[in-house]
Amino acid sequence: MYKNNNNSNGSNSANGGVNENLKKMVEITIAKATAFIKEFYYPLYDTERLEVLNLYKDPSISIWNGTECQGLEKIRNLLSEIPKSSHTIETFDCQPVQSFPNILPEDIDNPNILITVTGKVLYGTVSTHNFHQTFLLVKDPSNPQSLFISYDCIRLTS
């Protein structure tokens, strides 16, 4: 459905050679990812850390620099263990994650979302690092219009 985009960087047609369905899905994905990053995850993480728990569900996993925490209880422990933080976001990106193989029609209005974020993080008062964090946001079966964190995976890269 989203194929036939042969003029890959197409700029001749009025919409820039972009498939309308894809464009719509990108628009929705970006709006949700932006809100997640700027209004929820990082502001909460840096100020009211445990509120972040509301963004996970029980099967969720959080992987902190090679250590996995599965389930709300373990994620809560992890969140409590990490000292006060201050994140500065430098880049972020997101992609709709589609079902595979491509049999079912895509849920254009509410796709799952892959998010990657990079930036700087200060833990406590002296420990500054670069970080890279990956999130997969997936549909909440009990409330199909909302998403929750299926997993997040963070690495300090300096």
Partner: peptide, 15 residues
């Protein structure tokens, strides 16, 4: 980088 402003066509093309 979605932190930077760009129109939606550009953002779609870069995916």
């Amino acid at each position: 980088n979605l932190k930077k402003q760009a129109d939606i066509v550009k953002k779609t093309q870069l995916l």
